[in-house]
Amino acid sequence: MTIAVLAVQGAFIEHEKMLQELGADTFEIRQKSDLDRHFDGLVLPGGESTVMGKLLRELDLYEPLKEKIKQGLPVFGTCAGLILLAKELSNDEKRHFGTMDISVKRNAYGRQLGSFYAEETIEGIGIVPMTFIRAPYIEKVGDNVSVLATVDGNIVAARQGNQLGISFHPELGSDLKIHQYFLDMVKGA
């Protein structure tokens, strides 16, 4: 199984290491020619969504990746990656892929002093460590979206078909459960 990791900016190496540990092959997408390779799933990592959104467009990655996601390519977005997937951003006029029927608030916990750590249950996965870094959360979900986890009443994990969106950083630390869940999604796709 081959997973492509968007590597235009951010914490993409952390995702690659975890996926490799679980036996998946990975490669990085940095420019259009990288899309010529076959991949079974896509990871949109943490980082700055403004930077990734801009580079996706300028490096001609935006349309082809959006098309693949719409056609059912399994995709896993964390933090900035979740923002890329959201159909609506409640405090930003920008939209990126907009393939997931959710409304997301950017920097929902404020600046770095608002960053925090929690341990909560994700439906179908169990208790996982959750590291929130200047994180967003999901304010609203559409009918086709299942909420997988909440922290203090805010939605932090959701799934719509083959799209998995998480507002924290499962790529930090050593717990592989969420990555395993995504690989199982890819297998089932």
Binding site: G47, E48, A80
Partner: peptide, 10 residues
């Protein structure tokens, strides 16, 4: 330290 990780490649 993890915020710095998110800035990588930038």
């Amino acid at each position: 330290k993890e915020l710095a990780q998110m800035l990588k490649g930038g």
